[in-house]
């Protein structure tokens, strides 16, 4: 009896100390990296960014279609949308277009809130989602100020996916195929600058497809790249939130 009690006490104390140790360890391990996500971006390597010239956009949605095709996205998922607004007073009304992709923020609120680190800021500037790790809590969707994330509910255009939908496609460095319960279903998805194409040295599908040549993509670390030159004088969406987007806009500033 007496002995038993000592072990119980020891057990409680050890486990309490253990918990404290874990917490302290985590804090120390992460303390320097918490707010330095940006500094982690390797300046030696490529650091991708996109510039969208709104004055050249004609609102044709070719980018949206190309994106849906490239990433085989189901009906409710939109990596790229073109927000269309009517502006001006009658009789001088005109449509304005604002293509919205994932901003690949340098201070991404979505990355900060993910409880399992499934969504990460990559060294090349792209914010990725690991479909095999994501638990589908949808916290990141709540945190994104640009509505850039959508949830894959597992719905398809056809109840039985047609041959196009059922064919294999690539995202990040993996091959996926639509099927009940298979990744990326029940996870969150978003634009990733077609990272699988970029890795192969190709341009994102939307940039290739753009009719008005409104999109520019490339390495922002290289001051002579087309995208770096274009980025001068550009602005970003909701810059007051401090998310530091890597998608820049040219043309008349249309904040919100």
């Amino acid at each position: 009896m007496e002995e038993k009690k000592i072990t119980r006490k020891k057990f409680v104390i050890t486990s309490l100390l253990g918990t404290l140790g874990l917490v302290a360890g985590e804090l120390i391990r992460q303390s320097h990296s918490i707010d330095n996500i940006e500094n982690e971006v390797d300046t030696e390597n490529k650091k991708y960014g996109m510039v969208i010239d709104l004055d050249r956009c004609i609102g044709c949605n070719a980018c949206t279609i190309a994106c849906k095709q490239e990433n085989n996205t189901p009906p409710n998922i939109h990596y790229n949308v073109v927000i269309e607004k009517e502006e001006g007073e009658f009789p001088n009304v005109y449509n304005s277009f604002l293509p919205r992709v994932c901003m690949q923020c340098d201070k991404p609120p979505c990355v900060k809130v993910c409880p399992v680190g499934a969504t990460k800021k990559q060294k090349n500037g792209i914010v990725s989602i690991d479909y095999e790790t994501c638990i589908g809590c949808r916290y990141c969707m709540t945190a994104c100020p640009y509505g850039a994330r959508s949830f894959d509910f597992g719905e398809n255009y056809y109840d039985q996916p047609n041959t196009f939908e059922a064919s294999p496609y690539q995202e990040y460095d993996k091959i996926y195929q639509r099927g009940k319960g298979k990744a990326p279903q029940n996870s969150v998805r978003k634009c990733h600058f077609c990272s699988h194409r970029v890795d192969k040295g190709e341009l994102p599908a939307c940039v290739t497809a753009c009719l008005g040549k409104a999109r520019f993509f490339g390495d922002l670390n290289d001051p002579n790249s087309e995208v770096s030159i274009k980025a001068k004088g550009s602005w970003t969406l909701k810059s007051n939130l401090g998310t530091k987007p890597r998608t820049f806009y040219l043309g008349e500033k249309r904040d919100d």
Partner: peptide, 18 residues
């Protein structure tokens, strides 16, 4: 959760910023 079967990820892949 979208993936309830992965709930243990929250304990294994801890994320101090979250």
């Amino acid at each position: 959760l979208g993936h309830p079967e992965r709930f243990w990820h929250a304990l294994v892949y801890r994320q101090p910023t979250s």
